[in-house]
Design a protein around this nucleic acid. Structure first.
Lengths: 144, 144
DNA sequence: ATAATAAAAGATATTAATGTCTTTTATAGT
DNA sequence: ACTATAAAAGACATTAATATCTTTTATTAT
């Protein structure tokens, strides 16, 4: 479904959003622990998110990562597309280059609805939405 | 979504089913051409399908691959599970080891419906179903 | 200015997926 | 028996994903 990079990116975004109190940032180490993912790998990924303006970073002492309200209100789809591209919500499930209702692969019609609901799910839910669930202890980001 | 191996396995199964006239088999070369996939790679994959009894193979002159009615009536999910395991219809979308409605990841509830419809789609459609679409020219297995 | 901190960037390592080629085995037809 | 055919099996190659480590840059606090 998602690549590991994308999984980590989603979880890291939610974790960063969750720890936003408007003042302090959260560092790579804490993020990696919080989402149970390898530290150096997470570092790479959130650097990329930062470069692509999905999150903010601050260097030096007391530095780290944080998100603006605007960034938190972005749909999760944005994160997914940044990491994995839009294949999940656009491509043919059987990998046909040109698959459409005119020229469908055998699974096209069956898959259309699923692809659409996947797209809706990713478009209609923001980082903030998922952050709230975690804050309310209605969801978790790790298995501890 | 699916691995390349799984994509090829699904397309190859449908292709083999489609060419079944009860008498002759279809060879690797023809299959690979028919589904626009690398010949040697397809060979590996259908060998695996054969070993796992999803298709039959016959060695020697006029040999090749074919499927029984029973094999054609298996849901596509069987092929998917043989190639990629059951992660797609069972695992957490964020990769949590223990994700359930009791202890959900942030996306769990949103994803449940989608995972279920994916499972239904793969369980309720057989190789024969998709084969029919191709035979009726209502679907294609390649982009030529 | 200097030292400490933490991200950015770059280099390297490991593993898994994908793809290709060669040799072996089974079978059919002569 | 011999030859041709085609899958089976095994070895090898390439690429992409995942993971780790080192060096550099920016910033803060002393």
């Amino acid at each position: 479904m998602f690549s590991k990079s994308c999984e980590y990116a989603i979880k890291a975004s939610i974790f960063i959003a969750q720890h936003r109190d408007g003042v302090t940032c959260v560092g790579v180490k804490e993020i990696a622990k919080g989402i149970q993912a390898p530290e150096y790998f997470v570092a790479k990924i959130i650097q990329e998110l930062s470069r692509k303006k999905a999150i903010n970073s601050i260097k030096g002492p007391n530095g780290g990562f944080c998100m603006s309200e605007a960034q938190m209100k972005k749909p999760i789809l944005d994160i997914v597309v940044l990491m994995d591209g839009d294949g999940l919500v656009n491509n043919c499930i059987l990998g046909l280059e040109h698959c459409s209702s005119d020229n469908p692969c055998p699974m096209h019609h069956e898959y259309q609805k699923i692809k659409q609901s996947m797209r809706n799910m990713l478009e209609n839910n923001t980082v903030a939405d998922f952050k709230s669930l975690v804050n309310l202890k209605k969801a978790v980001l790790n298995t501890n």
